[in-house]
Design a protein around this nucleic acid. Structure first.
Lengths: 219, 219, 219, 219
DNA sequence: AATGAATGAGTGTTCATTCAT
DNA sequence: CATGAATGAACACTCATTCAT
C-alpha cells in the first residue's frame, strides 16, 4: 500500500514537472516572438495545450511566469562566473588572454545553453522600467544581476593584481564586456533570420574576443 | 490689414510648432518610461496638458507619433557617418585612432544630441518584431538603419585599405562597434539613476574607445 | 447711399442662400451614401468646401441639417395630394383609373423632383425610432407626414363616394399605396446601380400602377 | 461517474445555448430600437444581464452578432419559397389566387415567425450600403437575398406558363410583391404603437392580398 | 461671417485574472 | 487537478460641438 502510494506520488510529481516544463516552453516561445506585453495567456495556453486556469495553478501571474524563464539564465551566468573566480583564486590562469576568454565564455556558454531564455533576459533588461511586477520578483532578479556584476568586478580586479590584465577601471570594464556581449547578440538578432543568426553570432563573437584580448590582456 | 493677418498667421504657425513639440516631449518621456505598448495616449495627453483628440490632430496614430521621435535620431547617425566617410575619402585621417574615435563619436554625438530619443531607437530595435505598425513606417525606418550599416562598412573597408586599421571582417567589426555602444548605453541605463547615468556613461565610453583603438587601429 | 446699401444687402442675401444650398447639397450626398450616423460633419464641410463651424452658423445641429433636407419633400407630397383632392372635389375625375394614376403620381413626382431627398425621407422613416432629435424637429415632421395620410384618406373616401373606386377600407388602402411605392423604390435601390435604377424604377412603377388600377378602380 | 459527467456536459450545453439565446434576444431588441450604429455592445450586455466580454465569447464582432439575427429570417423566406416552387412544379395549384396567396404568405409567415428579426432584415436592406462589415458576412447575406429573388421569379414565370397568372414582366412583379410587403410592414411600424401594430398589419395585409389577386391572378 | 484648433463623451474590442463545477 | 465561462479595467481612436480669433 505504502509502496503503491509512493509510486503514485512520484508519477504525479513527474507529470507535474512535465506540465510545468511544457508551460515554460510555450511561454518562452511566445514571449520571444511577441514581446512581453503582446503575449497573451491565451496564446501560451493554446501552445501548451492546456487551459488558461491551469497555467495559473503553477504560476501566480503573468510576470511570475516570465521571471521563471529569466532567472535560471541569470543564475547560470553567476555560476559560470563563480567557476572563473575560483580558478583565478587558485592561480590557474597563466595568461590574460585565457582569463578574458573564460569571462566572455561565461556569457557565451550561458547564452548557448538556452539562447531563447537569454534573449528574454535582454528583453527584460531593456524594458524593465515599464513593469508592474510584484516587488518580490523584481528585487529577486535585480539582486541576482547585481551579484553577477560583483563577481565580475572581483575577477577583473584580481586579474589585474595578478598581472594578467592591464590596469583600468573595473567598473567600466565589466560594463564594457557585458555590454559588448549583449549588444552583439541584439544586433545579430535584428539583422539576421533565425538560421543565419547562429553562425553570424559565432564569428562576430570570435572577433570581439580577439579584440578584447588585444586590448585588455597584458602582452 | 494684410500685415495684421500675416502676423496672426505667423503666431498660429509658431503656436502649432510649440504644441507639436510639447506633444513630442511628453510622448518621449512616457514612451521611455513605459515602453511602447504600456504607453497610453491618455497619459501622453495628460503630460502634454492637452486633450487626447488634440494629439490626433497632429499625429495620425500612436505609431506615427512614435516614429516621429525615432526617425531624426536614425537620420542623425547616418549624417554623422556620412561626414566621417567624406573626411576619409578626402584622405584627412592620418591615424586609425582618430578614425575609430570619429566613428564612435558619430554614435555618441547622436546620442548626446537627444539621449531620450536614442534610447527610444534602441527600444524599437529590440522589440520591433512584435509590432503592428503600418508597413510604410516600418520600412522607412528599417531602410534608414540599413543605410547606416552600409556606410559604416564602407568606412571600415576604406580605413583598412588606407592602412589606418588592421585588416579584419568589416561585417563583424561594424556590429561590434555598434553593439558595444548600444550595449554600454543599455547597461548604464539599467544600473544608474538618471543623474549618475551621464557621468558613468561618459567614463565607460571613454574606456571603450581606448580599448577599441588599441585593438583595431594600426600602430 | 440707400440704394447702395440695398444692393449690398441683396448680394449678401444671395451669397447666404448659395452657401446654404451648397451645404444642403453636400449634406444630401453624404447622408445618402453613408447613412445618418456614419455621416460626419467633417465630410460635409469638406464636400461643401467650407469649414465645419460655418455649417453650424446655418444649422444648429446635425439633425436640424438633416431635417432641412427632409421637410421640403414631405411638403411636396402634401401639396401634390392637395391638388388631387381639389380636382376631385371639383368633380374633374371621370374614371378611377385616372384618380389612382394621379395619387400614385403625387408620390412619383415628388420622388422625381428630388430623388435623393426622397430617399432620405425613407431613410428617416425606417430609422426614426433611433433618433435623439429635439422634440421640435420630430413633431414638425411627424405632423407633416400625418397630414399627408389624412389627405390621402379623404381622397380615397371621396373617390369611393363618387363611384370611381371600389369600396374598401381607406386606412388600409392608403397604407398599401404608399407602402407599395416606398417599397418599390427601396427594392430598386438595393438591386440596381445608380444608372439602371431610374429605368428599372420607371418600368416597375408603371406595372404597379396598372395593377393597382385593375384592383382598385371601378371598371 | 461517466454518467455524471455526461449529465454535466449536457447541462453546460444547454446553459450555453440559453445564454446565446439571451444575447440574441437582447441584441435584437436593441438593434431594433436603436438601429445598428446607435446600438452599443454595452447596452446589449446590460439588457442581457451579462458583461460585455461575455458577448465576445459567443460572437466575434458586432456585425457577426447582427448577422446571426438576420440570416435565419432570410433563410426562412428562401425555404418557404422553395416549398411553393415545389408545389407549383408538382402541379398542385389550381388557381392563381392560391398561388399569389402562398407567395405572399411565404413572406408573411417568415415575418410572423419572428417579426423583430424580419424588421432587422429590412433595416439591413435599407442601410447596407454604408457598412464596414467583413466581406464574408456581407456576401453571405447578399447571396441568400439574391437566391430568394431568383426563386420568386421562377415561381412567377412558371405560374404564368401554367396559365395561373396573367402574363407580365416577372422582374417587375416580384419587386412589386416583395416591395409591397416590406413597404406595408414599414408603414404600419411607423404609424402604430406596438400593440395595434399586429392587427393593423393583419388587415392591411389581407386587403393587399385581395388586391394583388384581383390584379395578377387569371380570372 | 468664417475658421483653425480643441475637447468631452463615447465605441468596439482585448486581456489578465477569477469562479464554479 | 483541470477547465469553460465570466468579467473589470483598459485602450486606441472618433466625432459633434464649441472657442478664440
Amino acid at each position: 500500500m505504502t509502496m503503491h502510494k509512493k509510486v503514485i506520488r512520484e508519477r504525479r510529481k513527474k507529470e507535474r514537472e512535465q506540465r510545468i516544463q511544457s508551460i515554460l516552453d510555450a511561454a518562452s516561445e511566445v514571449f520571444l516572438s511577441k514581446g512581453y506585453l503582446k503575449t497573451t495567456m491565451d496564446e501560451i495556453a493554446l501552445k501548451a495545450e492546456i487551459s488558461k486556469p491551469t497555467i495559473y495553478q503553477y504560476f501566480e501571474t503573468k510576470d511570475v511566469l516570465f521571471f521563471s524563464l529569466i532567472i535560471p539564465v541569470t543564475e547560470m551566468v553567476g555560476k559560470e562566473s563563480d567557476k572563473v573566480e575560483k580558478k583565478l583564486i587558485a592561480g590557474e590562469y597563466t595568461s590574460g588572454a585565457s582569463l578574458i576568454h573564460d569571462i566572455l565564455h561565461a556569457f557565451y556558454e550561458s547564452y548557448k545553453m538556452d539562447p531563447e531564455s537569454f534573449r528574454l533576459v535582454m528583453l527584460f533588461q531593456q524594458t524593465h522600467m515599464a513593469w508592474e511586477m510584484k516587488e518580490q520578483s523584481r528585487l529577486s532578479i535585480m539582486e541576482k544581476g547585481q551579484y553577477n556584476y560583483e563577481v565580475g568586478r572581483r575577477i577583473l580586479r584580481l586579474g589585474m593584481e595578478q598581472g594578467l590584465l592591464r590596469s583600468m577601471d573595473v567598473y567600466a570594464l565589466i560594463d564594457i564586456l557585458w555590454g559588448l556581449f549583449v549588444g552583439i547578440v541584439q544586433i545579430e538578432d535584428i539583422k539576421a533570420t533565425k538560421k543565419e543568426r547562429r553562425e553570424n553570432l559565432e564569428s562576430t563573437f570570435k572577433l570581439a574576443e580577439t579584440l578584447m584580448i588585444d586590448a585588455v590582456a597584458k602582452n
